[in-house]
Design a protein around this nucleic acid. Sequence first.
DNA 1: ACTAAAATGATAATGATTATCAATAATATT
DNA 2: AATATTATTGATAATCATTATCATTTTAGT
Lengths: 141, 141
Amino acid sequence: MNSIEEKLKYSNYRITGQRAAILEVMMDNRGKHLSAEEVLYRAREKMPNIGMATVYRTLDKLASIEVLYKTMFGEGRYRYELCDEGTHQHHHIICPGCGRITEMEDDLLNILEQKIESQGYEIIDHDLKFYAYCPECRSKR
Amino acid sequence: MNSIEEKLKYSNYRITGQRAAILEVMMDNRGKHLSAEEVLYRAREKMPNIGMATVYRTLDKLASIEVLYKTMFGEGRYRYELCDEGTHQHHHIICPGCGRITEMEDDLLNILEQKIESQGYEIIDHDLKFYAYCPECRSKR
DNA sequence: ACTAAAATGATAATGATTATCAATAATATT
DNA sequence: AATATTATTGATAATCATTATCATTTTAGT
Ligand SMILES: [Mn+2]
Ligand SMILES: [Mn+2]
Ligand SMILES: [Zn+2]
Ligand SMILES: [Zn+2]
C-alpha cells in the first residue's frame, strides 16, 4: 500500500470531481505546504463552485489515509502537503524570521522508533520540527 | 541564564501576584501538560479573580523567555509545561487511542542540529513528537 | 429507472485565542 | 509622601480557523 492510487483504492471512498480537483491541487504543489484556504482558492480554478467544507473534509480524509501530511507550523492553522512515498516523512526547519520552511531528509529517527517500539508502542507517525533562523535572516541581525 | 529565577530576572518584567500564581501552578504541575483553561482553573484557587486574558498573556510571556514550553498535541489548543533546565527539551509520545502523553529523553537530535547549524542556521528550538498506540491501547484491539 | 448511501455546499455554530479599553497597581520622579 | 509615568489587569467583544447541520444533489448497486 504505497502509491497514492493504491491508498485511494483501498480506502474505498469515491473519487468525485471535487476530490480529484483537490488532489490535483496537492500534486501540482508538491513540496509546498498549503493551508485549507489556499487549497480552496486553487481548487476553485478547476471547479468554481466547490465549497470550503468540502475542502476541509477532503483534506482530512486524504490525511487519514496518508496521502497527505497535515501539520501546523506554529501559526494557528493546519497546512497540508503530499506525503513522501515509501520513505519516512521528512522533517521541517521553520525560520522564525521570515517563516520560510525548509525540508530535511534523515533516518536517525529510526533508532528512536526502534527504542519506542521495543517498549510496546506501535508507531503511527512522527513529527519533527526545528525552529531556526535561516542564513539570510541571521545576516540581517 | 538557566534557572527560572535568572530567566525572570533578565526578562525584567514585573512579578505580580497573578504571574506568581500562574508560575506556581506550573511548578506544582511539573511533568504535566496544561491547557490555558486548566491553568486558569488552578490559578483561581490561589487568586479567585484572575482573568483568562491574564493567563494567556502570562503563559505566552513565560514561554517567550523559555520558562515554559508551549506546544500542541494535535487537539487544536496549546498546552504548556515547565521547560527542562539545562538539558535539551524532551520529546513526546502521544497515543491516538487514549491521548496519554509519555516523555522521552534523548540526545540523537544533537547530531541533526549540528548538521543544520553547519548549513548556516541558528537553532532556537525543536519539537519532536511520535504518535504511537500505547501498550494498553494496543492490547484492546 | 429505483433505491439506498454518500457527498456536497450554504450557512450557522463552536471554541480557542487576541484585541480593546477603562480601571488599577507598580515604579520612578519630584 | 505626593505625583506623574508606565505597566498590568480583567471584562468584554472581536477574530478566525475549523466543525456541525441539513436540505439538496450525486453516485453506485440493483
Ligand atoms: Mn514538507
Ligand atoms: Mn513534556
Ligand atoms: Zn528566515
Ligand atoms: Zn493509549
